[in-house]
Nucleic acid binder design. Sequence first.
DNA 1: GACAAATGAGACACTAGAGACAAATGTCTC
DNA 2: GAGACATTTGTCTCTAGTGTCTCATTTGTC
Lengths: 187, 187
Amino acid sequence: MKTLKPSEIAAYCDVHQRTVSRWIANGDLKGHKLPGRGNYRVLLDDFLLFLQKFQIPLPAELQNLTQTSVLVIDDEPGYRNSLKRLLVQQGFKVTTAKDGFAAGVSLLAEKPQLVTLDLQMPGLDGFDVLHYIRQRADLNDLKIVVISGLSQAELDQAKAAGADAVLTKPFENHVLIQVVNQLLNRG
Amino acid sequence: MKTLKPSEIAAYCDVHQRTVSRWIANGDLKGHKLPGRGNYRVLLDDFLLFLQKFQIPLPAELQNLTQTSVLVIDDEPGYRNSLKRLLVQQGFKVTTAKDGFAAGVSLLAEKPQLVTLDLQMPGLDGFDVLHYIRQRADLNDLKIVVISGLSQAELDQAKAAGADAVLTKPFENHVLIQVVNQLLNRG
DNA sequence: GACAAATGAGACACTAGAGACAAATGTCTC
DNA sequence: GAGACATTTGTCTCTAGTGTCTCATTTGTC
């Protein structure tokens, strides 16, 4: 869990360090004191919340840390890689998972804003994944794009189970891009 | 009882190690000296008290270290439940996972100190899990007990892949308890 | 047993929090 | 638009605490 010093925050916000101290002391910016002289430290997440709250644009140095991240869950290497290539091109940070275990780990490790999910994978029931994600409160904001070659009835079922969008295999690249960007409110 | 070095505490608090030495010397942080040059060690509990006293947020790495937690990965409900009952009896906090996805999620959500892993599960290759865990630096301290009905050769292979212990199905309860407690340095 | 890495502690320069006050900015009223 | 007032920010200063450098010694590793 990374923390920032007031001097770093002062540089990001282009204000005097004295001002940052006062923000923290006033409670405008959440931070904690260390023993000794009581030096301040601010959790990176709290700083990002602060920036958001006051609608301060993200400093360039922090942009890669908050790059929108996407998780691709698919067992077919071909689809996995082409999806990855496509999404990387769009500027996303992309993680891939070829089975349920990797998907579960990556889901929490990468905390993606969006997942693409193949419904029919050997050894992994896509509906289980849908139900699981929708049941966890902390994954509420996660967007799920189901990608599958299943029948329309099953795709409807997937939507009912919590998928934000469904695509049938094969799909056009530009359709996927449009759906993803729309779900993430980009462009 | 786990102890921390000043260097680790320095990393958690984002200060210089020299500063941590002084905190301990001043009594801000309770610690003890070892023979030799007098290297410092801090009990985990004392460090947690210290964090609480100064209202410092808990580092993510320490989040689940207070109660020993175990994850049981097995697709057979019978084994899963009997393992859980056995381990709960021993005072562990036990989570169970019936498939790879649940296992992956629980592994990061619960941050267990130990997992029991069935090598032969439909749709989940136990060796993949072993390799995956051993490849992640942040799961270095995780103990893995492989439980399986496979041949000795495969069990040896599991050990080579990073399992800390292997048990053949069926096993005696007291053997499992002994192995688990030994791996976790308990009584 | 030998070599590399880690660590406590001393010395010293420098940092950062806080108080005080001035300057700048925003708000309200007329 | 001007004046009065409140709020916030920057500057200066003080000082305890922190980081850096160094060294001797210990610990870890092979």
